[in-house]
Write a protein that binds this DNA or RNA. Structure first.
Lengths: 162, 162
DNA sequence: TATTGACTTCGAGTTACTCGAATACTTTAT
DNA sequence: ATAAAGTATTCGAGTAACTCGAAGTCAATA
């Protein structure tokens, strides 16, 4: 962290090229106050420092991990407020960790499903073309059979006018 | 797959309770033609069969895994069309597998980030309350340092009117 | 008969972008 | 000197996939 760290030097276009975010998104994040301290040049144009870049990276990282913008805002507000918000910030981070882990579990599950489906399509392609697994006819989509609650299973309610 | 498999017997509410999807979402999917063959009772009310449930599960699974509705529609159209679409269906599935794997990699990366942040907050909470890692001051958010392209790094362009 | 509850459609609201138009300014080319 | 490029700005509309609530219809129950 040298003295050039806070020196404003990157235009929106630069930041876009560095981070891979679109110029639109960068402006949008700035408009939403997700990057405090962004300065402007003598006219009106945004200028980002390395510090701003770091900050944007953090915001981007939060967003990728699925934290809503409102929560990112909340986290930022806490950072700006001071040390007394540390416990709450830690809480937010811990919660987000849980959510990410849940997401990864869910996606791994879906990956299993898709692999099964893929295996089926491969078997059908290499062997004879017998599309019995077509969901139109028969749909073994979900390996895990879903449970139908007793009160629904036992009491089908079809109301047909006599 | 017995003969009751295609018998319409579940109301929207039933399906909601069985699948966990909201009634709104179920109707939305039906409106979007994501569940072919859904029947209606003598009046106007939707009635779902076990087959429809399976189908809805498939759609739900696709959606969870991030496949856009337009693609789900495309997949369905192909299923309805017949065996000649099998190669293209297989392609779609393979592509979606890749996307899921990429997503899982990305989320694992984000999980690493969040774990680092969490560790920091834990160290700060148990030890002395020294919030030097507050991004306001210094933001080691991104373990991996980002590269600033040479042409940007070397030519800082600050235009200040004289 | 009135209330309850479940169904319907429809239209508006939400989130997080995403895109394009209108406009302003500087730099470069003619 | 002026025109064309290039980059910047704001602003308003569009998009995806829900999400919600209002208004209306009908059947069963109190």
């Amino acid at each position: 962290m040298d003295q050039t760290f806070h020196e404003p030097k990157y235009s929106v276009k630069d930041v876009s090229e560095i981070t891979g975010l679109t110029k639109h998104t960068i402006r949008y994040y700035d408009d939403q106050q997700l990057i405090p301290f962004v300065s402007r040049d003598a006219r009106i144009n945004r200028l980002f420092s390395d510090h701003d870049l770091d900050w944007l990276r953090m915001v981007h990282s939060f967003r990728i991990s699925g934290l809503p913008i409102s929560e990112v805002k909340h986290y930022i507000a806490m950072c700006l407020q001071g040390d007394e918000t540390i416990p709450e910030r830690a809480e937010l981070i811990a919660k987000q960790e849980k959510e990410l882990e849940a997401k990864i579990r869910e996606y791994n599950l879906q990956l299993m499903h898709i692999k099964k489906k893929k295996a089926y399509y491969e078997s059908v392609s290499t062997g004879q073309l017998d599309d019995t697994w077509n969901p139109v006819n028969n749909n073994p989509e979900c390996g895990e059979k879903y449970d139908i609650p007793e009160h629904i299973k036992s009491a089908p309610k079809v109301h047909v006018r006599a």
